[in-house]
């Protein structure tokens, strides 16, 4: 867990971590959300749409941004204000993802950090976006 204060942050600052997506993660996500869409559960269904196997939920991949910001950058003082993401490529079970955040803007007047985020799989970008984060005082 990182403990960056607003004054510790600078434009260009970067944090990253790796995570491998497991079938158990999909099951847990399904249990929480109730999303039983067959694209995420049924290989045959997914293959009918030219995917090699069932596809990982885009919002499961996105959920790693919670870890990126709440644990790494800025860490414990994080308050997520908005998330904008795109999914240029699908993610599959077994993929090792590199989750990366880079500070793009700092607005001291409102203690806001704008973070460019991306998630890569072996050099291929599977998620890109922008998060706006409040940095709590203290």
């Amino acid at each position: 867990m990182n403990h960056y204060t607003f004054n510790d942050l600078y434009v260009g600052q970067r944090e990253e971590f790796s995570v491998t997506v497991t079938e158990n993660m999909l099951s847990s996500f399904r249990a929480v959300t109730g999303d039983v869409n067959p694209l995420h559960t049924d290989d045959a269904f997914a293959q009918a749409y030219n995917y090699p196997q069932h596809v990982v939920y885009g919002l499961l991949t996105t959920s790693f941004l919670s870890t990126l910001t709440g644990v790494y950058l800025p860490g414990e003082r994080c308050l997520i204000q908005s998330v904008e993401v795109k999914f240029p490529k699908p993610v599959f079970v077994g993929d090792e993802l590199l989750v990366v955040g880079t500070v793009a803007e700092l607005h001291e007047s409102v203690r806001q950090l704008v973070l460019k985020v991306e998630i890569m799989r072996r050099g291929v970008r599977v998620l890109k976006g922008t998060m706006r984060l409040g940095v709590l005082e203290g």
Binding site: Q81, S82, E105, H107, E108, S109, V110, R111, Q112, V114, R132, G134
Partner: peptide
């Protein structure tokens, strides 16, 4: 309150000014 933050940041970017916390 959230849109206020977005507004302040948008104004800062548009006019290339930085407000301080007291002003906001």
């Amino acid at each position: 309150s959230l849109e206020h933050i977005n507004l302040v940041v948008a104004v800062e970017n548009e006019f290339d000014v930085d407000f301080n916390m007291g002003e906001v």
